[in-house]
Structures are given as structure tokens and as C-alpha cells.
């Protein structure tokens, strides 16, 4: 299969869906002629023009609220945040309005809206360009939260998002945007709530998201040479979260490590740990372990930045330790 970067893969999904559905339009800063800070809309302006590729003022709350009203009245907005940090000013519009309107209207108003932006630590971007907010959004009823790690999945998940009548947070880790992987041609959909088993294994289950999937894959390779067989699961969407695949894997391995760059307290790792402790307790042969990014704003200086993110070495050691328990 051909290899594309995640950036190219999601552009292919957006481009295909915009050609297919004239109600889709994109809002964001520099997503018109410029083609997006991360090339999210590269080349689309020439096809679809300024109404469908709408450069906005720096009014995050404003254009997210505008997108809400548009989604209620027959169009399908895609809001391109650039960095997910920027949209915190619009959190009320997302959490109080977009997430709740289907419910309040007893399902008579749909909310077909995609809210996409970059997350993740790297590039010495420091704390206003490196947050991961997926656990926050996943707590609220009414939102779908997608965190892809592979280009092929990203294409399939974005296509699903663009055909979904629910609001979708599509959060792309900046450090994986440029990584290449196999991407199916043509129509490609990946269902929400279906995890991907990246590696089959029998000794320990590792659940990882976004960039951590790639670091965990490297750890799997190292451990394989030592005869440790790791089953690696990428949930791909955390709302909905695929309980069955995680529980089935833990039933097989008896051990679980969750690797999440985002904060530990009240995070998706805590949720997965609680799920397994609750439903899969009898299957466990060792305590559930979590590895998270440090609970601190993201520092700028490279050695400090490196220190707050789980590395392949740390993940490898954590898996070894867990296997010894």
C-alpha cells in the first residue's frame, strides 16, 4: 500500500468529503489561501473558494459559536483550531452548547460539526502550543473524541467524523503529523469505538494513544528481542472507548500498562484503569500501572521538555517491571 503522512491522509479525507458534500465548510485562521498552518486545507481554496474555506479573525469563541449555529441549520462546519490550546476560550461553546443541543432538542436538531486541532508536546513549543485536552472533552456527554496515531486510521476516522451527526473533537498529535504509514485509496472509513490492536502479544497489554503508540511500538521491538511479548492497543477514539478489546486483551495477558502523554489525574488512563479494576479484576495477575506526562505546564527548554514526556526507555523499563511483578 502507498505510504502517506498523517497530514496528507487527513487532507485526502477532507478533500474527498468536501467534493462529495457541498454543505461542508472550514473555518479557521489561515486555512484559506494559506492552506492551514499544518497544511490541513492545502490546495482546497482553489477548488472551493472563500465561502467554504473561510479565514476567520482571531475570535475562537466567536467562530466556534458560529459553527454551532451553522451545524443547527443545514451545513457541516469543520473548525480548524490550528493548536487545540487556542480554543479554550471557546470551551463554553463546545461544552455548554455544541455538546448539549441534540439532547435539549430531544434529538430534533443534529450537531454535525468537526472540531480539529493539534495537540501534544514537542518542537519546544512550550505550554501554549502543546496541551492535550482529550480527557477533558471525553468527560462530557454529547461529544465524540478521536485521537489518531496512524495515517491510515486518521483518514478513516476523519471521513467517519465528516459523515457523523454528532460533534467530533479530532485531535492530532503534532509529532505524528509528518510520520508516514500505509493509507488506503478511495473511500475509507474507520468506525468510532473500535480499538486497533497494533501488536498481538501474550505477556502484557499496553494501551497507548497518539505519539505514545509510536514510542510503545519501539519498546515492543526492544522487548521482543528479550522474549517479552507485548499486546499493544491503540483505542483511536476515547469517546466512545472500546471496552471490549481492552478487557479481552487483559484477560489474555493478566497485565496492563497505560501510556498517556497527558496528565494522570482524572485522565483517560485513570478511566481505563478503573474499567479494568471494575470489570476485569479477576483477570489481573499484577497491579495496573500507568505512565503519564508530568503534571506540569509544558516547559520550553529541550532537556526540560524531554523530561516531562514518557520516553521509549521509560516505557520499556515500565513493561519489564510489570512483567516481573
Amino acid at each position: 500500500m502507498r505510504q502517506l503522512t498523517m497530514m496528507k491522509a487527513t487532507l485526502e479525507a477532507l478533500s474527498g468529503e468536501m467534493a462529495r458534500n457541498p454543505a461542508i465548510f472550514v473555518l479557521g485562521e489561515g486555512i484559506g489561501k494559506r492552506g492551514g498552518n499544518f497544511n490541513t486545507t492545502s490546495g482546497l481554496f482553489d477548488f472551493h473558494g472563500p465561502q467554504r474555506l473561510r479565514d476567520t479573525p482571531i475570535s475562537e469563541r466567536g467562530f466556534v459559536g458560529l459553527a454551532c449555529g451553522a451545524a443547527m441549520t443545514g451545513t457541516r462546519p469543520v473548525v480548524d483550531f490550528m493548536f487545540a490550546d487556542f480554543v479554550l476560550d471557546a470551551a463554553g461553546e463546545i461544552i455548554n452548547q455544541i455538546a448539549k443541543i441534540q439532547y435539549m432538542s430531544s434529538g430534533r436538531i443534529k450537531m454535525p460539526i468537526v472540531l480539529r486541532g493539534c495537540i501534544g508536546i514537542g518542537h519546544a513549543a512550550a505550554t501554549h502550543h502543546s496541551g492535550s485536552y482529550y480527557s477533558l472533552y471525553a468527560q462530557f456527554p454529547g461529544l465524540r473524541v478521536v485521537v489518531p496515531s496512524m495515517p491510515g486510521d486518521a483518514k478513516g476516522l476523519l471521513t467517519t467524523a465528516l459523515r457523523c451527526d454528532d460533534p467530533v473533537l479530532f485531535l492530532e498529535h503534532r509529532e505524528v503529523l509528518g510520520l508516514k504509514g500505509p493509507v488506503p485509496e478511495g473511500d475509507h472509513l474507520v468506525e468510532f469505538g473500535k480499538a486497533s490492536v497494533m501488536r498481538q502479544g501474550s505477556d502484557v497489554t499496553v494501551v497507548a494513544l497518539a505519539l505514545m503508540v509510536h514510542k510503545a511500538l519501539a519498546a515492543c521491538d526492544i522487548l521482543e528481542r528479550d522474549g517479552i511479548s507485548v499486546e499493544l492497543i491503540d483505542p483511536r477514539t476515547i469517546a466512545p472507548l472500546d471496552h471490549d478489546t481492552i478487557l479481552r486483551s487483559v484477560a489474555k495477558t493478566g497485565r496492563l500498562l497505560i501510556v498517556d502523554e497527558a496528565f494522570a489525574p482524572c485522565g483517560i488512563g485513570a478511566e481505563i484503569a478503573a474499567l479494568v479494576a471494575d470489570v476485569g479484576f479477576d483477570e489481573l495477575d499484577a497491579p495496573i500501572r500507568r505512565l503519564n506526562g508530568a503534571h506540569t505546564p509544558t516547559p520550553y527548554s529541550p532537556p526540560l521538555e524531554t523530561a516531562v514526556v514518557p520516553s521509549t526507555e521509560i516505557i520499556t523499563q515500565a513493561i519489564r517491571d510489570l512483567c516481573d511483578e
Binding site: F25, R61, G62, V64, G65, L66, A67, C68, G69, A70, A71, M72, T73, T75, P77, E93, Q97
Partner: peptide, 8 residues
């Protein structure tokens, strides 16, 4: 904001 969105 929502009325502006409907207008859009």
C-alpha cells in the same frame, strides 16, 4: 454567535 452561524 449561533444566529450568525445560521446566517452563514
Amino acid at each position: 454567535l449561533q444566529a450568525a452561524g445560521a446566517g452563514y
